[in-house]
């Protein structure tokens, strides 16, 4: 009876969600509909023609090499950066599970990179990697014994390693924090029992540790994968997509098309494609969680 008292106030419950729905409709759904309409039109900033031209923009997607290259680049970057962050984060978490003097202080310092804006992370690494005034080349010179001047953010073969270093530096601590929290909850008694039974490290990891940290790890990887797929800030600060289009990620290409080349309708088609791809990916990923739960 009391349950129904709480459950049964229609005006109240809709009143509570109304502002949220209003905001999301206004800034989420309205632009989205506008985007879909624009993608079938022929809008550019210079003439005010808004004629519909059917699927022309979508046909253009198929033959746009620059677009597909940017997608491949983004996926490759995600595929390289994510495992590195995951493994390094895991190793750090394992290390910090042990007794270490000044543990809390060290952890707070390690988390610094994750707190700062990606923009600042990019700027910081441009300072670090500057060919003349940066300490990285200086250290490499010491180790090599000769003067080394690597053009980190300029030369085509070094820009990706440079961005990768900054990315891994910024987000490994995030992985570390999540995995550390997850690992702290692994059942100690089970681990000890496994050790007494003489289970190998790999068996213990696969049978006890991995299942226990899986939910957290899955969400952490999903969050980072989505972030990496739309990476913009860090790359923009470090290279603006250059040299040429060497570091042009999907988001940067979309930005260039919309705000530099003013191909409004075409960029709308790109945006719609990206949203469709992401939706498919996320739905598939979340299905997996539901199943595994």
């Amino acid at each position: 009876m009391l349950k129904t008292l709480l459950d049964n106030d229609r005006t109240f419950r809709y009143l509570l969600v109304a502002p949220a729905v209003f905001f999301i409709l206004l800034i989420g759904l309205y632009p989205f509909i506008k985007l879909i309409i624009a993608s079938f039109q022929n809008i550019s900033l210079f003439d005010d023609i808004r004629s519909f031209q059917g699927l022309l923009n979508y046909e253009r997607l198929l033959s746009d090499d620059r677009l597909w290259h940017s997608i491949v680049r983004t996926l490759l970057f995600t595929a390289v950066a994510l495992p590195i962050e995951l493994v390094l984060g895991y190793l750090l978490a394992v290390l910090f599970l042990e007794k270490i003097p000044f543990k809390a202080a060290l952890i707070s310092i390690i988390l610094l990179p994750t707190i700062i804006s990606p923009i600042v992370a990019g700027a910081t690494w441009r300072l670090m990697l500057d060919q003349r005034f940066g300490p990285v080349n200086q250290i490499i010179s010491w180790l090599a014994g000769t003067d080394v001047k690597l053009l980190w953010t300029v030369s085509a073969s070094l820009v990706w390693p440079a961005i990768l270093i900054a990315e891994v530096w910024q987000w490994t601590p995030f992985m570390f924090l999540l995995l550390y929290a997850a690992l702290s909850n692994v059942d100690r008694e089970q681990l000890e029992a496994a050790q007494i039974d003489g289970a190998s490290w790999w068996m213990t990891f696969r049978r006890i540790v991995l299942p226990a940290i899986m939910p957290v790890m899955f969400i952490a990887v999903l969050i980072r994968a989505l972030d990496l797929f739309r990476v913009f800030d860090l790359v923009w600060t470090m290279t603006q997509g250059g040299p040429g289009t060497a570091t042009e990620t999907l988001s940067i290409y979309a930005y260039q098309m919309a705000f530099r080349e003013f191909e409004i309708s075409y960029s709308a088609a790109i945006a719609f494609l990206v949203i469709v791809l992401l939706t498919v990916f996320v739905v598939a990923a979340l299905r997996r969680v539901e199943v595994s739960r």
């Binding site: 999301i24 800034i27 989420g28 309205y30 632009p31 989205f32 506008k34 985007l35 624009a38 989505l226 797929f229 739309r230 913009f232 988001s251 979309a254 930005y255 919309a258 705000f259 409004i264 960029s267 709308a268 945006a271 719609f272 990206v274 949203i275 992401l278 939706t279 996320v282």
Partner: peptide
């Protein structure tokens, strides 16, 4: 929650026009 997934750059231009 699905609204959060959309990359900002995708809706940036419609929002700009709005």
């Amino acid at each position: 929650i699905s609204q959060r997934m959309i990359p900002p750059i995708c809706v940036a231009f419609p929002i700009f026009l709005l």
